[in-house]
Computed example of a mutant assay.
Amino acid sequence: MIPLYNKEHYIENTLKSVLRQSFQDFEVIVVDDGSSDRSLEAAKRVQSNKIKIITQPNLGVSVARNTGIHHASGTYIAFLDADDIWRENYLETIRTLIEKYPQSDIFVTAYAVHMKNGKINYSLRLVPKTGCLESYWTMLGKGYDFVWTSATVIMREALIKAGCFKPQEKIGQDLDMWARVARNNPRVAYSADICVDYNRAAESNARTRVKIAWAGAFIQDLEEELINPARTVTEIEAIQRKYDKKMTAYIFTSILAGEKKMARKALQNWKGEKNLRNQMLQAGLWAAQLVPKPINAWIYKIRLKVF
């Protein structure tokens, strides 16, 4: 399922990577979300009876994904952003996970992150090489997202049961979706094989389109889970770690956008247990409000180049 919006320079290679899969029992649903460039024409240049292209007005990536989910005929939905690449063994690896770990609704692989400066980073690779984690929550906040869109397949019924993607969300829609699926079934089947290439250097993505990193629905999910009595100590620690990171991104981008009142309110409403890490983060964010905007912008730019 590929949502498409203004990715004319990437979509052909993305589609070709899907068609090159060693496992060939799949359909490809591309939902063009009202692209204003030549993305739709580029997608149509890739000819295959496996590809179905749906067009809609610009309603946002969540609506596009929901459209794809409801038009899908398969049991599982494999998500892929229009500027990322699947390696040839991706779907074969996922099929093996599905056969080996039928108790899970979420199936993921490791992935490579291609930065703008040419550097390549990698998501967390667990030992043993394959397995089924009992809790999605324990992996939160450990480097790059363990469950990440273009390297994630989820049972279609589980997505529908969880309510699909929230249309109003501008950023973090996928994280909110995975969290709601995990509330019903927290297991995550994984492979440590690197099967996907994440194009972090793409011209247009959420990081460039959204000025303030307010992942509202996902932050609310985390706040609710922080007080969920069913969560273990290990889960709470991981949830707190992810929450602290998301709040830091939101508050710092608010400061960069000149919304210091918004930043102060968020700092005052920071949830969860106090620890040395988040107290240091909060102190740094209070101090950032006194730093000239160009310096903060430089710091944020450096951060994006590194991670």
Rank of each mutant, 00 (worst) to 15 (best):
residue 298 W to S: 09
residue 114 H to E: 07
residue 169 E to F: 00
residue 294 P to G: 00
residue 100 K to R: 06
residue 74 G to Q: 10
residue 59 L to S: 03
residue 275 N to V: 07
residue 208 T to A: 11
residue 182 A to F: 08
residue 235 E to M: 11
residue 185 N to F: 13
residue 186 P to C: 11
residue 241 R to N: 04
residue 222 L to T: 01
residue 193 D to C: 02
residue 40 L to P: 02
residue 61 V to P: 03
residue 126 L to Y: 07
residue 79 F to H: 06
residue 285 L to T: 05
residue 207 R to H: 11
residue 1 M to E: 13
residue 212 I to A: 04
residue 173 Q to W: 02
residue 136 Y to F: 11
residue 98 I to L: 09
residue 140 L to M: 12
residue 107 F to Q: 04
residue 196 V to L: 08
residue 28 V to S: 09
residue 81 D to P: 10
residue 213 A to R: 11
residue 35 S to E: 04
residue 281 L to M: 12
residue 181 V to G: 13
residue 297 A to H: 09
residue 259 E to L: 13
residue 250 Y to G: 00
residue 64 A to N: 11
residue 206 A to F: 12
residue 168 Q to W: 15
residue 31 V to W: 00
residue 183 R to P: 12
residue 9 H to W: 05
residue 272 G to V: 09
residue 170 K to C: 02
residue 34 G to C: 06
residue 85 I to A: 00
residue 41 E to W: 03
residue 204 S to E: 10
residue 289 Q to G: 14
residue 157 E to C: 12
residue 271 K to R: 14
residue 135 S to H: 05
residue 276 L to S: 12
residue 187 R to M: 15
residue 298 W to A: 09
residue 51 I to V: 07
residue 162 A to L: 08
residue 292 P to S: 07
residue 195 C to Q: 08
residue 163 G to E: 10
residue 4 L to K: 03
residue 162 A to P: 12
residue 283 A to E: 02
residue 36 S to H: 01
residue 222 L to P: 00
residue 237 E to Q: 15
residue 167 P to Q: 10
residue 218 F to Y: 15
residue 57 P to I: 05
residue 112 A to E: 11
residue 290 L to M: 12
residue 196 V to W: 04
residue 124 L to W: 02
residue 129 K to N: 11
residue 295 I to F: 14
residue 100 K to Q: 08
residue 51 I to T: 05
residue 146 F to M: 13
residue 93 T to K: 04
residue 100 K to H: 01
residue 49 N to Y: 06
residue 267 L to W: 07
residue 172 G to P: 12
residue 195 C to D: 11
residue 127 V to S: 15
residue 98 I to N: 01
residue 51 I to W: 10
residue 192 A to W: 09
residue 299 I to Y: 04
residue 192 A to M: 10
residue 239 I to E: 08
residue 250 Y to S: 02
